[in-house]
Amino acid sequence: MSRIIRWGLLSAGNIAGQFAQDFSAVENAVIHAVAARNGDIARAFAREHGIEKAYAGYEPLLADSEIDVIYIGTPHSLHFEHAKAALEHGKAVLCEKPMTVTPEECEELQRVALRTSGYLMEAMWTYFLPPVQTALRWVQEGRIGRICQIKADFGYPQFPFDSKKRVYDASLAGGCLLEMGVYPVALAWLFMRQDPAEIQVVARHAPNGVEDDLAILFNYPESVVTLGTSFRCKLQNWAYIIGEQGYIAIPDFWRAREASLYVLDDRVDHFVDKRATEGFHYEAQAVTNDLLAGRAGSSVVAARDSLAIQRQMAMIREAFSDEA
């Protein structure tokens, strides 16, 4: 019998629920336990998703010797301490994006992974979606020529405003950049693989001062990237990778189900992912496969990728802080 990778969920919130819902499509793996600060919530989550164990508090989950890997779905500001604790307990870690809230935290967490010989990956699930991987392959094959522009945005209204609501709560690293802007920033890095020479940002802020609407321009020597994110309005949430010879359109790129390749006005190729899930199982399967193969890290979301995304978000924050 092949080895089964046993997962533990450190959180019983909404994102953990989506992750668990898709897990039935993951092979050679099982969710063994879930933990929440409130034991009743953990037990209800376990019943809903058919999970064997439920823990009140996180320490029992980390101490469970049967668990191979921990999925962390807590608020952004807690990712660093929870991922660090899991690594120091000898667990592999899949940590929700953004993995940390600063580049410095990201670097320190990666040092902990090296010190403990632990597996650490940021849960950038968009990178694993087949339409995004297909678009990347089209670019690498030269089908659109040299990239001239990238356009990507991600925004949903978060009304009414409440400073205690997680997405607005400054103490939990609230604001649209880390909550939603991480998606277009990560997409730009996936296709560009370099830092921009110049960044310009137009920012709007919620009543408590956290950013709630951003328009971002990355200027490269031969390309321009325009990104947007917002709590104020529903954005298109598409991505366009535009080259000298054609362009790629990815509707709802963050949860992409299709991608189209155009030359001028003609669609010349089209990929559709007919999955029955939301798509979280792709990243879970990739981590499972890495652990079964004894790999030290991910080749899809590598340490340098997570650090680059953190670095670019810090550059964006600096740009709109200077603007203020």
Results as ranks from 00 to 15, higher is better:
258 E>I: 05
258 E>V: 06
258 E>Q: 13
258 E>R: 09
258 E>F: 01
258 E>L: 07
259 A>G: 12
259 A>E: 05
259 A>L: 11
259 A>S: 12
259 A>Y: 07
260 S>F: 10
260 S>I: 06
260 S>L: 12
261 L>V: 10
261 L>K: 08
261 L>E: 08
262 Y>V: 11
262 Y>T: 14
262 Y>P: 05
262 Y>W: 09
262 Y>A: 11
262 Y>K: 05
263 V>I: 11
263 V>G: 05
263 V>A: 11
264 L>K: 10
264 L>S: 15
265 D>G: 00
265 D>I: 04
265 D>A: 08
265 D>P: 00
266 D>E: 14
266 D>S: 14
266 D>K: 11
267 R>T: 05
267 R>C: 15
267 R>Y: 00
267 R>I: 14
267 R>F: 01
268 V>D: 01
268 V>P: 03
268 V>C: 11
269 D>G: 12
269 D>H: 07
269 D>A: 15
270 H>C: 11
270 H>K: 03
271 F>N: 01
271 F>T: 07
271 F>M: 07
272 V>L: 03
272 V>C: 01
272 V>F: 06
273 D>Q: 05
273 D>P: 00
273 D>I: 07
274 K>F: 04
274 K>Q: 13
274 K>P: 00
274 K>A: 14
274 K>R: 13
275 R>D: 05
275 R>L: 11
275 R>K: 14
276 A>E: 13
276 A>K: 10
276 A>F: 02
276 A>M: 07
277 T>A: 13
277 T>W: 03
277 T>H: 06
277 T>L: 03
277 T>R: 09
277 T>Y: 07
277 T>V: 11
278 E>W: 03
278 E>M: 13
278 E>L: 15
279 G>C: 04
280 F>N: 09
280 F>W: 06
281 H>T: 13
281 H>E: 15
281 H>K: 02
281 H>G: 06
281 H>N: 12
282 Y>D: 04
282 Y>M: 06
282 Y>P: 02
283 E>G: 06
283 E>M: 14
283 E>V: 15
283 E>L: 15
284 A>I: 03
284 A>K: 00
285 Q>N: 10
285 Q>Y: 06
286 A>E: 02
286 A>R: 06
286 A>H: 09
286 A>L: 02
286 A>C: 05
286 A>S: 11
287 V>C: 12
287 V>G: 06
287 V>M: 07
287 V>A: 08
288 T>F: 03
288 T>D: 06
288 T>N: 00
288 T>A: 13
288 T>H: 05
289 N>D: 15
289 N>L: 09
290 D>N: 07
290 D>M: 03
290 D>S: 04
290 D>K: 01
291 L>W: 02
292 L>C: 02
292 L>V: 05
293 A>D: 09
